[in-house]
Design a protein around this nucleic acid. Sequence first.
DNA 1: AATTCGTGGAT
DNA 2: TATCCAAGAAT
Length: 358
Amino acid sequence: MPMTPAVADRLLPWYDRHRRDLPWRAPPGVTADPYRVWLSEIMLQQTTVPAAAPYFRAFTERWPTVRDLAESPLDDVLVAWAGLGYYARARNLHKCARVVAERHGGRFPDTEEALLELPGIGTYTAAAIASIAFDRVATVVDGNVERVVARLFAVEEPLPNVKPTLRRLAATLTPQRRPGDFAQAMMDLGATVCTPRKPRCMLCPLAEGCAAREAGTQEELPRRAAKADKPTRRGMAFWLLNPEGAVLLRRRAEDGLLGGMTEVPSTGWAAGPVPDEDAAMGAAPLPARWRRLPGMVRHTFSHFHLELGVMAARAGAGWQAADGFWVPVDRLGGEALPSVMRKVVRHALAHANDGDGA
DNA sequence: AATTCGTGGAT
DNA sequence: TATCCAAGAAT
């Protein structure tokens, strides 16, 4: 068993020496802006630091305060979030900003309990904001902390079932002083030293007393239950270009996969083969001289693979689709196009001149 | 309680 | 190429 009270006493000095300078971090000793802490924590949910950093810079430059964000239309937020994934985060981010602006006077609540009531803020994020922005004693448990704790105590039971146990063990480590720094130190340790593969135990301030290291199981912990394999869904997308050089797009449903985002019209995505050209016609946004482009767009979502065939056609002047809108190809950067749809755009443009596609 | 929800880098 | 997985939340 590690000497739990000593963990923070060893980790905080390590943090003071190795603390990473991340875009959302205030200088040492300076109180963090709760808005920036909140924004970064939402962006970092299931997302790497390198992926989130440029989005964080763009958001804080464009929306310096939570009120600025609250006053912005949701669609602008979705455009800015496009490419970062898990788009419910962006919808909840906007919703949360409005709640904070309208019901909390533009200031984030300063307790875990109150933070938990806000959209998009769960147990992890509430604890992170409370500790980092408000110096509240809170147990912050993310994937890094789970890994560090599982190794420190040599917990053999697999995730995710063992999560409650890991949380209880983490709570025994949480210090009364500098809880925010301790939380960030645990996460930094997990990100840079106690890494998923090849942990650098020689550099670890907690190596002494680490039960997994003593048992030699540090590279095996934490164990994880086997994951279900991803099925493959397929569909056909429709690339329709009008005489002005604009492409037909539409908005996805507000909820569910890619909710509220912009898409190239397509058939549904389902198990089975890519629809043949005749079958796809029934789902085409408009009748036209549709032609199958060579190749396929492949993309992997959180829980399934997608293979998308692409058909292309030219629209006549003045054509309109019931639920679609036209966007000039050179202005697609201003649309809320998720990564999979940017792949479709790239594929269509790449093959636009293979025959009559363009 | 088990599913759903993205993306891209590392290995 | 295939798999893993990263500062999780909502339902």
